[in-house]
């Protein structure tokens, strides 16, 4: 029983990471109907930047903030330079650009920071476990940071004018332009935010799984599974899906398939969603009257 509780708790901890990346995917999907296959590699690159800043002598939280800002700019610039000209291109071209980005980021990371596995510091280091030994201080701290970011994103989209304009631009770009919204700027902002979410997820998971250029590829897979499970067009669903996949991964890994096949659980989840509930658990069924 204690073991089960432990598995669920640590599933929720990694689930928070998946939820962040899933949310980043859904944000871009909603506004452009593109799936950013490079989201994981971009996050890994950001995490390496954070490590380089820490190694250069910046305090942890200074490096954290700087990485968030750099990632935001990186995301926005990629949207403006690479994705904007692809706005009306066939799907194959946009998918191709994402794959190209994935390759470039992956090998840039290896090129600049080397392929050796590195440890990444945690700001929550202390030797005694909390909550009666259930969670390490880092796990708890990372969860708090992740949740804070998710809540901030929610508040931003729900309660700010800019957030509303970004949602409007995603749902209906034509009408958005007619009320004066600069849709192009909104897309760039969305990319910036998505890159930021990925960067935070990367910095929070790196102390657990260690840092290497392929660190996020598995995490991206769980995020896909989470996004599909929650409904690829539903941000709240994607977050819930991300947490759910974290728990599924841990429980499945511990009791069903063993840790060797953990990654395949993401694949099975994806296929199961497609077979049984293609719109996801919370896929929006839009009520319309004509």
């Amino acid at each position: 029983m204690i073991g089960l509780l432990h598995q669920i708790l640590s599933g929720l901890v990694t689930g928070g990471i998946y939820a962040s990346v899933a949310l980043a995917l859904v944000m871009i999907y909603q506004s452009t109907h593109h799936v950013n296959f490079a989201q994981g590699e971009m996050a890994t690159f950001s995490t390496y930047i954070a490590l380089a800043l820490i190694d250069a002598g910046l305090p942890y939280w200074g490096a954290f903030v700087a990485t968030v800002v750099i990632s935001f700019i990186m995301g926005a610039v990629i949207q403006i330079v690479l994705m904007r000209p692809m706005a009306n291109a066939p799907v194959l071209s946009s998918v191709g650009v994402f794959i190209g980005l994935l390759l470039v980021f992956n090998s840039l990371t290896g090129w600049i920071f080397s392929y050796t596995i590195k440890s990444f510091p945690s700001p929550f280091e202390s030797s005694r476990p909390l909550l009666g030994g259930f969670l390490s201080p880092h796990e708890l701290g990372a969860t708090v940071v992740t949740l804070a970011v998710l809540v901030a994103v929610y508040l931003f989209f729900r309660h700010t004018k800019l957030g509303l304009a970004m949602r409007a631009a995603a749902f209906n770009p034509v009408s958005s332009r007619l009320v004066g919204i600069r849709v192009g700027h909104m897309l760039a902002l969305g990319w910036g935010l998505a890159a930021t979410l990925g960067a935070v997820a990367g910095m929070m998971i790196a102390p657990v799984v260690f840092l290497d250029p392929n660190m996020m590829s598995g995490i991206l897979l769980y995020a896909f599974a989470g996004a599909l499970l929650g409904g690829i067009d539903n941000p709240a669903g994607a977050v819930i899906g991300g947490f759910a996949v974290g728990v599924i991964e841990n429980l499945g890994g511990a009791y069903v398939v063993g840790t060797e096949l953990k990654l395949s659980l993401a694949l099975f989840t994806i296929v199961a969603v497609l077979v049984f509930r293609p719109n996801g658990l919370f896929g929006r069924v839009l009520v319309t009257r004509v």
Binding site: A165, A168, F171, V174, L286
Partner: peptide, 25 residues
């Protein structure tokens, strides 16, 4: 201000949010 054919409603948003968007600028 342009009221387009098909009315251009932001279907997914609330009436209030639609109106708020009108005053976006």
């Amino acid at each position: 201000a342009h009221v387009p054919d098909g009315r251009g409603t932001f279907m997914e948003l609330t009436v209030e949010e639609n109106l708020r968007l009108g005053a976006y600028t």
